[in-house]
Amino acid sequence: MRLFSLILLLSLSSLSMADTQVDRLLEADDAPVGVVFEIIEDDDDALGWALPKVARLSAQLRKRFPELPIAVVSHGREQFGLLADEAEGLMAPIHDKAQKLRDDDIDLHVCGVHAGWDGYTPEDYPAYVDVSPSGPAQIRDYRNLGFVLIVLQGPDY
């Protein structure tokens, strides 16, 4: 029972890490240069929870800092939910959320290296998804510009 309680406590605390980081940014006197959300999950459906969380946290940030640049880099298995041939059917809600992020001026990137490992090219993704040559390099580029990194982790952590 103690082990279960510890695991539950740790999972609940990790779920709120991104929220805590955003709360700290909201309490700051000055806006950050920008924010980049990193998503790297081993679950093809992870964008189903991750993109709504990005939207919610981004809305909070933009309410306080309206001109804040925001980006998302997805570079785990979840990025395959954004393939163009997945835009209809079960993955349609994920694509709708991705398009909404782009409409809200939030850049959305996936990892070209990871896509290539599974035989996909940039042409396999819709126009509203930017295929970066490398997800980790894309994050590094944002961080070099001064963006704050916020790592999103799913409910299994």
Rank of each mutant, 00 (worst) to 15 (best):
L25T: 01
V151K: 15
L9F: 12
S14V: 08
G76V: 00
R140I: 06
R140H: 08
K97A: 14
G81W: 01
D118Y: 12
A18P: 00
P69H: 08
A55T: 10
L12A: 14
I70Q: 01
N144G: 06
L145W: 14
M91V: 00
I70V: 15
I39S: 03
A92G: 03
L68Y: 01
G48S: 14
D19R: 13
P32M: 03
L6W: 11
S74N: 13
L108H: 05
H75Q: 10
Q138A: 09
G154Q: 04
D43F: 01
G76F: 03
D156Q: 08
L68S: 02
H109W: 12
H109S: 11
C111F: 01
C111S: 10
D104Q: 15
D45T: 13
H109M: 09
I106T: 07
A98S: 12
A28S: 15
R56S: 13
R143S: 04
L15D: 00
A31M: 01
F147E: 05
P52Q: 08
P155M: 09
P32V: 02
F4S: 10
A55R: 14
G154P: 01
D85E: 12
D156M: 04
P155L: 09
N144K: 13
V35K: 06
D130E: 13
G116H: 08
D130T: 14
S132G: 11
V22Y: 05
P69Q: 11
W117N: 14
G76D: 04
E78Q: 15
E88F: 02
I94N: 00
Q138D: 09
P122Q: 12
V22A: 04
Q60L: 14
C111I: 08
R77S: 09
L6V: 13
G34M: 08
I94P: 02
Q153W: 09
K53D: 07
A98T: 09
H114M: 11
I150Y: 06
A115S: 15
V148N: 02
D105N: 12
V129L: 09
S74W: 06
V113N: 15
D124Y: 09
A92C: 08
N144Y: 00
F37D: 03
S16W: 14
Y125Q: 11
Y157S: 11
Y120T: 04
I150P: 04
A87E: 13
G154M: 05
A31T: 03
Y142F: 13
K53W: 09
G112H: 00
L6M: 11
E88M: 07
A28M: 10
G119D: 06
G76P: 03
D130W: 08
V131G: 06
A59M: 10
A46R: 10
R140C: 00
Q138W: 03
I70E: 03
G34P: 04
A115L: 06
V73R: 02
Y157L: 07
L152T: 00
P133V: 10
L25E: 00
D107W: 03
E38L: 12
V36F: 06
V151E: 12
V54N: 02
G89N: 10
S74R: 05
L145E: 15
C111P: 08
P93A: 09
F37P: 01
S74Y: 06
G154I: 01
Q60N: 12
S58E: 02
F80T: 02
